[in-house]
C-alpha cells in the first residue's frame, strides 16, 4: 500500500470512528429526550418544563411526586431493563454465532416462569417481592443448568436451552392448569410490565444490571476476537473458555435481573442487536455500546405506548414490544438483507 493509500485509509477510519461516535452521542440525546417524554406522558399529563422542574427544583406538588416517585423509577427501570436485555441479546448472538439467539434461549425466562409458578403454588410468591425472588432463583438455576450441560459448544448450549425451556414451560403450564389461583397470579407476571414497580425494592437487581453492563463493555474486546473463530482467537491470545464463561455469567445475570423485575419481555434482546449491527460494523464493543443506548430507547418508547395506546388503561409493555419487535425485525432483514444477520 502506498503512503497516500495509507493516509487515505487512516482518514477513512477516522471518519468512520467520528461517525460512530456521532451516532452514539445522537443516541444518547435521543435517550434523554425519550426519558423526559416518558416522565411526562401518562394518565396525568405533565408538561416537559414541569418534568425538568421536578427533577431539579422539587416542590412536592402532585406533578412533582408523579415525576419523581412514580414515573422516575419506572423510566429508570425501563432504561435498565432495555439495556440489560439488549446487551444480553448482543452477547448471546455473538457467543452462539446465531443471529436468532436471544437471552431466553438459555432457559432463563422459562426458569423464571417455572419458579414463579411453583412459588405461587406454594403460596410464597403472591406479592411483587416474592415473585422477584422466585424469578431470580429460577432464572439463575436454569441458566446454570444450561451452562453446565452445554458449555462445550455454542450449538450444544442453544439446544440445551431450548430443551430445558420446553420441559420447564410444559411442567409450569400443567401446574397452572391444575391450580386456577396460580394461573391468576402468573398471568399478570407473564405478560411483562413496568407498571407499579416504583414501590418494589429494585436496588439489588438494578445494581446487578449496572455491574454486568460494565462487565460486558470490558469483555467486548475479547469477544471481538472470538467472532473471528476459536482458532484465531487462541492465536490472538484470548482465553476462549474463560471469555465464554464470563459472557455466560453476564448474560444470565442481565437476563435474570431484567426478567425478575419486569417479567418476560420478548423481542428486545433479539431485535436491538440487529438494528445496530450495521453501524457497529462488526465491532463487538460498538455493538455493545449501541445496544446499551438503543435498548433503553426502544423500551421507553414501548412503555410510553403502553400508557397511551388504549383509552381504557395500560397495555403491558411486553405486548407492545412484541407488536413493535416483529415488524422491526422484518424491516431490519429487508433493509440490511441477510448480511445484517
Amino acid at each position: 500500500m502506498t503512503v497516500a493509500g495509507r493516509a487515505s485509509g487512516r482518514a477513512g477510519d477516522k471518519r468512520a470512528a467520528a461517525g460512530q461516535i456521532g451516532l452514539l452521542v445522537g443516541g444518547l440525546v435521543l435517550l434523554a429526550v425519550v426519558t423526559v417524554l416518558s416522565m411526562g406522558i401518562g394518565a396525568r399529563p405533565v408538561p416537559p418544563s414541569e418534568v425538568v422542574r421536578a427533577l431539579f427544583d422539587y416542590q412536592g406538588t402532585d406533578d412533582h411526586v408523579i415525576v419523581r416517585d412514580v414515573r422516575g423509577p419506572r423510566s429508570l427501570l425501563a432504561i435498565a431493563v432495555g439495556a440489560a436485555l439488549a446487551v444480553a441479546g448482543a452477547l448471546i448472538q455473538t457467543l452462539a454465532r446465531n443471529p436468532l439467539a436471544e437471552p431466553g434461549i438459555l432457559g432463563v425466562t422459562a426458569g423464571a416462569g417455572f419458579a414463579v409458578t411453583v412459588g405461587s403454588a406454594l403460596g410464597l410468591a403472591a406479592g411483587q417481592t416474592g415473585q422477584l425472588g422466585f424469578a431470580v432463583i429460577g432464572s439463575v438455576l436454569a441458566a446454570l443448568l444450561v451452562a453446565a450441560v452445554g458449555r462445550r459448544s455454542p450449538l450444544r448450549l442453544v439446544l440445551t436451552g431450548v430443551a430445558l425451556t420446553a420441559v420447564l414451560s410444559g411442567v409450569a403450564l400443567g401446574l397452572r392448569l391444575m391450580l386456577p389461583d396460580v394461573f391468576d397470579t402468573y398471568r399478570f407476571w407473564s405478560v411483562g410490565s413496568l407498571a407499579a414497580r416504583e414501590q418494589a425494592s429494585l436496588a439489588l437487581p438494578l445494581t446487578a444490571i449496572v455491574v454486568c453492563l460494565c462487565g460486558a463493555l470490558l469483555l467486548s474486546r475479547a469477544l471481538n476476537a472470538l467472532t473471528l473463530g476459536e482458532s484465531v482467537a487462541h492465536t490472538l491470545g484470548a482465553g476462549v473458555g474463560r471469555v465464554r464463561a464470563v459472557a455466560l455469567v453476564l448474560i444470565t445475570v442481565l437476563c435474570a435481573a431484567a426478567t425478575a423485575v419486569a417479567g418476560p419481555i420478548l423481542f428486545v434482546g433479539l431485535i436491538v442487536p440487529h438494528l445496530v449491527r450495521k453501524p457497529a460494523a462488526g465491532s463487538v464493543p460498538w455493538l455493545v455500546l449501541y445496544t446499551m443506548v438503543l435498548g433503553p430507547v426502544l423500551m421507553l418508547v414501548a412503555d410510553i405506548g403502553s400508557r397511551v395506546l388504549l383509552p381504557t388503561g395500560e397495555v403491558p409493555v411486553g405486548i407492545v414490544t412484541a407488536f413493535l419487535g416483529g415488524p422491526m425485525l422484518i424491516w431490519a432483514v429487508r433493509r440490511y438483507g441477510a448480511g445484517a444477520l
Binding site: 401518562g42 394518565a43 396525568r44 412514580v70 388503561g313
Partner: peptide, 10 residues
Amino acid sequence: EYPSVEELPE
C-alpha cells in the same frame, strides 16, 4: 372504576 394510581389526586 380502575384508574391509574397517578389519578389519585383527581
